[in-house]
Amino acid sequence: MSDCIQVKSLPRPVHYGPVWQAMREFTEQRGPDTPDEIWLAEHLPVYTQGQAGKPEHVLNPADIPVVQTDRGGQVTYHGPGQLLVYCLFDLRRVGLYVKEYVVLLEDAVIACLTHFGVQGACRKPGAPGVYVPVAPGGALAKISALGIKIRNGRSYHGLALNLDMDLTPFMGINPCGYEGLQTTDMRSQGADVTLDQAAQFLCEYLSKAMAQRMSAAVA
């Protein structure tokens, strides 16, 4: 049994559909000793609708395709300037429950934002993901979305972190099912960070956390 997480950087930008299908196939075919993997991606513009997503949250997709997928959550947008961290983890192997896993992903993003100088990153009760206060008034804007799927104790999909992107397409939807939810990115919050820099931090954070869980599970 290996606790080594393999990191795969996908071509950028890449279409969403083939990556989703590949994640499903990996998860279905992996065995009890298959090492976990993290896939790093930046997608061509696409709206993805969660498994229980409501069509009324898609307001005006224009020429951006809408893909019905099998992750949790409602509709969100992926596009250039956004980092996707797809976590193909065997949660059962390390004794990690779903709620704990969501907290782990959020903790990783909060640590990443703090490391690169984005202030005030936090959770929002009842709304998974990570938010930051924006002027005026310090209202919370979403900077990172989470969407996961667990099959036989194994996860796929993961998190999206907005780095330096055109945020206009978020206006074509109710992001994550919340009407009027404001979105932002790291550049807007004063952090000039590349996808590779953010990816390295998140991969190191998640790899360390999963290794600690593995050590505890086999102790």
Rank of each mutant, 00 (worst) to 15 (best):
D33L: 03
T48A: 05
V19P: 07
H78P: 10
H43V: 08
T194C: 06
Y86G: 00
L206A: 04
G147F: 00
L206N: 09
Q82K: 00
V85I: 14
Y86H: 06
R213Q: 06
G120V: 09
L206K: 12
P125W: 09
G129T: 09
W39Q: 05
L59H: 01
V193I: 15
V98E: 01
V85Q: 04
D63V: 11
D36H: 07
C176I: 09
T184E: 03
F116E: 08
Q119C: 13
C176V: 09
R151I: 09
V109N: 05
L105E: 11
W39Y: 02
E42Y: 03
I148L: 15
E106G: 03
H43I: 02
K8C: 13
C122G: 12
E56W: 10
A198C: 08
Q200L: 13
C203F: 05
G180D: 09
F170M: 04
F89V: 13
C203H: 08
P61D: 01
A121P: 14
Q119F: 05
D185E: 12
P65D: 02
G79E: 06
G147P: 13
Y86V: 06
L140S: 09
A141H: 12
F201M: 00
T114P: 08
D164I: 02
R151F: 03
G177A: 07
A41H: 01
S9E: 14
A217T: 08
M165H: 12
V218K: 13
D196H: 11
R213H: 10
R12L: 11
L202I: 10
C203A: 06
D70F: 00
D192Y: 12
V94H: 02
N174I: 02
Q212K: 14
